[in-house]
Write a protein that binds this DNA or RNA. Sequence first.
DNA 1: CCAAAAGTGTTGAAGTTACACCCATGC
DNA 2: GCATGGGTGTAACTTCAACACTTTTGG
Lengths: 247, 247
Amino acid sequence: MISKKMHKLNPKISTDCVIFGFDEDGLQVLLIERKPIAGPTENKALPGDLIFDDEDLDDAANRVLKELTGLTDIFLEQIGAFGSPERLSKPEDKKWLESVRQYPDERVITIAYYSLVNKNLYQPQASSFAQNAVWVPVEQVEDLAFDHFEILQAALKQLRSKLRTQPIGFNLLPENFVLSDLHKLYESILGRPLDKRNFRRKINKLGIVESLNKKQTGVPHKPSLIYKFNEGNYERLMKEGYDNFGF
Amino acid sequence: MISKKMHKLNPKISTDCVIFGFDEDGLQVLLIERKPIAGPTENKALPGDLIFDDEDLDDAANRVLKELTGLTDIFLEQIGAFGSPERLSKPEDKKWLESVRQYPDERVITIAYYSLVNKNLYQPQASSFAQNAVWVPVEQVEDLAFDHFEILQAALKQLRSKLRTQPIGFNLLPENFVLSDLHKLYESILGRPLDKRNFRRKINKLGIVESLNKKQTGVPHKPSLIYKFNEGNYERLMKEGYDNFGF
DNA sequence: CCAAAAGTGTTGAAGTTACACCCATGC
DNA sequence: GCATGGGTGTAACTTCAACACTTTTGG
């Protein structure tokens, strides 16, 4: 957490968070809106801000995320540092920085993080300089402030790579779900269709899900069995990893 | 490269380089020595220094590596940012910082990079504050200055992971080599034995090596065929990647 | 002739891919 | 009864792991 010693903003280092969520519209990313200047997503940015000078990087990412969106207790994984000297120099970005930063011309290196959250459990609430916090389907994002589009692409790449060796979904799906939810999630992340039977076989073999022996109700088709994650196996595979999801 | 604008050191951001080499003694890492204070490797550190305020991160890593070791034209890959507020606060490290830094108490975040080089082509020459630049077998490194041991472990992890999806060796072996060199290289990086026949089959199927139809001479055993990398296939697989090396 | 490393094939098991039909439900 | 998505098995193929002996050279 934040030490009490200095507590002074470091004008040279920031953190940005790529928060992924998932729902019936596919993979979403959490963006904040600053006052509209240009096109549809050009006024949107990843939640991010300067860190404190005595603050651990991971702590800073959690603090900034909380300040801008209200989200707490999220496990953030580092993507890396982005530090092109020109990353803040688009004219509309400069104008915006002048309105919120003490040293708007300072060259800032950002440490980016990403995370996966269950959209139903985490309802973002904009605050601080965020006018609004919104979920946007990843495939609809075409442009973002600063170099944030590039950071988003790096996050996606890392997420896709993670998918191959670790289970995923625990933080993206509600507690109870049906296998086609998980199936759609994997397809959304990978951006391509996966064979239904092969997907189910693989998931079952991993042992990360177990059926509640209950069925959906009220659906206009054959009701599906309802599942939950087997937390023990899930955690174990998170730690140990496996070789290859097989797709 | 380095812009001419400001050219002022950024006292809050540094870069550190993990340079791997390979020879008959296995996988090596390039370290610089500062004047001896404590145990066998405690006075050793990764080559690294503060960056300039107007300098791109990748450029900074290349510059610092050159300044401390003379190595140039090396492709460095980012590992990530390391920013614990305590990372510079071991007593012997503080003492050393006081002797070389203008603001020795400044909290510094470092962006770490790693690379693979052919030890025969790159002979490091210590300069700047490096008293000496030495290759040390990775498995003999037990402790390093600052948080550099942790950075080394992260580099190793990333290297092992890279091994699964991309060819490796072009920058670690001499132009001509024998298959058992490559075999030993993979074993060194993974830290475990690999079956000889399976290894050869896999490498051959990748198509990254081709025989020169020449044999070793002067060896006290059956002479091996001499190989070189097929640069075209190698580059292609570097870009495209493959699923799994299979070990 | 001995020591040393090179080079080579097979087999059983496991994993991967592709593919089509019937089922249970709401309307 | 129709539309919708749920749920299931197999066959051909590829990949993987394990394993032992002969060859060529220098000394």
